[in-house]
């Protein structure tokens, strides 16, 4: 009875080491990675960073999205920052958008700051987030541009 007990506790404490799986939780600052091999049919929601190297058929919402070279996204992307090196068919909406040379974008880009490298393929319109917000009649989601507008209004 007693010996069995000690044996059991001994084995249990040994189990994590023997399992070889590193138990410590990763810091959530590390990006989630959709590997080049992976195909996702569905939506992704992430409050952190997302790196896509594979295929996604669905909508993506995240704080930061990187669409790597060779990646294919079919669906809309909404994030704070989006970096595109791969191909995307769908709308991109983010305050900061970067489009690399290797990118292929088929769809609209709604942005606040946009950088496009020479050689990138763009097929769609580029609109400012503010003009989109004004067009839809809703107030701008980010309060940042408001003081500037005020200044302009009082100046004129």
């Amino acid at each position: 009875m007693f010996s069995q007990n000690t044996k059991q506790t001994g084995t249990q404490s040994q189990t994590p080491a023997a399992s070889g799986a590193p138990a410590p939780k990763r810091a959530s600052t590390e990006p989630s990675i959709i590997s080049a091999d992976l195909r996702v049919v569905g939506d992704l929601h992430c409050s952190g960073e997302l790196q896509i190297k594979g295929n996604v058929e669905g909508d993506i919402k995240s704080r930061s999205v990187t669409i790597g070279e060779g990646a294919h996204v079919q669906g809309s992307v909404m994030a704070d920052t989006v970096h595109i090196s791969g191909s995307i068919k769908g709308q991109v909406e983010a305050p900061a958008v970067t489009v690399a040379r290797s990118a292929r974008v088929q769809g609209d880009i709604v942005h606040q700051t946009l950088a496009v490298e020479a050689g990138a393929f763009l097929d769609g319109s580029c609109r400012h987030l503010d003009s989109k917000a004004a067009a839809s009649g809703t107030s701008a989601p980010k309060a940042a541009p408001a003081p500037e507008d005020k200044k302009l209004a009082t100046g004129a």
């Binding site: 939780k25 959530s28 569905g42 952190g48 995240s62």
Partner: peptide
Amino acid sequence: HDDLVIVG
């Protein structure tokens, strides 16, 4: 990671 939810 724990901040990602995939429905699909």
